[in-house]
Design a protein around this nucleic acid. Sequence first.
DNA 1: CGGTACATTGAAGGGGCTCAATCCACGTGG
DNA 2: CCACGTGGATTGAGCCCCTTCAATGTACCG
Lengths: 258, 258
Amino acid sequence: MTHAPNQSDPAMPANAPDSYPLIERLAAFVPLTEAEHGFLRELHANRRTIARQREVIVAGRRYDGLFILCDGIVLRYKVLSDGKRQILGLGLPGDLIGFPTCLFTDAVNSVSAVTDIVVASIPFTRLFELFRTWPRLGIALFWACAHEAAIYGEHLVNLGRRTAYQRLGHLILELHARLRAVGRAGPASYSLPLTQEVLADVLGLSGPHVNRMVRSLREEGLASIEGRAVVIHDMTGLAVLARFEDHYLAAEPIPDLT
Amino acid sequence: MTHAPNQSDPAMPANAPDSYPLIERLAAFVPLTEAEHGFLRELHANRRTIARQREVIVAGRRYDGLFILCDGIVLRYKVLSDGKRQILGLGLPGDLIGFPTCLFTDAVNSVSAVTDIVVASIPFTRLFELFRTWPRLGIALFWACAHEAAIYGEHLVNLGRRTAYQRLGHLILELHARLRAVGRAGPASYSLPLTQEVLADVLGLSGPHVNRMVRSLREEGLASIEGRAVVIHDMTGLAVLARFEDHYLAAEPIPDLT
DNA sequence: CGGTACATTGAAGGGGCTCAATCCACGTGG
DNA sequence: CCACGTGGATTGAGCCCCTTCAATGTACCG
């Protein structure tokens, strides 16, 4: 049960065995006091490793807390009664897992681990404590969730109004930006351990068609996906094609929060 | 600038000129004390009426607060550089508008009023006060936003993995459930002041095709949309067809919150 | 009465799906 | 060392859902 190091890209920092990704995430919104810092460190205390392919959250079950994804990649998805699957989003290190699905009596979505992952569990009692004792952290968390929600918004645009080709291009650029923000990507490359089947379920497409789009991107010299190695050859060209604008990924300090 | 009363359906309660929809929304998650009740009432103090078709939030501009939608319907959307529009969601009475778009330095989405609407504005300073002074309300708000996020998740499934026919059916059922929850719908009917063009942009379809799907639904005896009157003739048949399950719309009290 | 907004309908085309077959890399056991 | 199994990538053929681009209809409104 080794958890995979960041393979192949020398630009990636070694993944510290005890990182505090939620701290980095929230620090983007609020300058943290030493005391707040300490509380957040405690939130990472209860870590657990989960093997790839394992379910982290099963739709229909009850949960009494959330998780911070400390390392690895997860996907949140829903399966329809006719067997079709739609992946609602990818969780990258630093993301909160269980929002919003665990905030229901019975989880509304499932979450499974793509790679081996490390999660820190946060029981709701801890979360309540956070809101009660550290209101600034509560506000920052609120902001962080809003930023996650904005990603879903862009995902909606992807499914509703972009062609298959554009969708794939957009996803490649979004994941690059998100991974880069947490030190998991090079200037124009990253490692993406997803099968084309999974990409298809993210993009609302079929497997074979994703394959064709991957080939097109390569033939056009825009980007290449070989195995798990993604390389972007023409960032601006791809952005133009995919109508990618990264405003929605920017995390900036909350104004006027004293 | 009259704001439209709930026309045509006798089951709908008259829309009180001074309602407190956020109270009802949050009360579903947390039993409210009298003091909390009072604070929330204050949040509704600063009301404003906005005429139909008017923009409430313009993407790219800066905002210093959120809004509670007290009455009417809004839509949140994004327009791509090639002119295509995707509507990310409909805001109904009681919904928070500006989440997540206003929590960015520059708003990432636009919001416009479909009908004449009444909004209560909540500057961030008030919001911070809420989190600092009324932590239970902060928690409830967090939960409420999670529930809104779940709606977007289902919307993603709609665009990614349902046919045009199913999408329309699903939307009809979802809106019925949501409107009914806030006392704006009859047992199997409601008023929906959206053009087919707008429906198309919600569903990721073209206008003409929405028209055909509307006709199909009527011919199959499942539901009818005539002008703004929506009538569901076969609730279960429609639910089966659209793979509609309403778990994600259920708001239940937060457990263990003392 | 003309204008505007929206609903409706038709014809043609294409983007993406379905359903396979094939290929390929890799790990495993004999 | 090779046979085999397996998961995934790749490719092809046919088709159908949905789009595009109109034209037409229709209610409402100043």
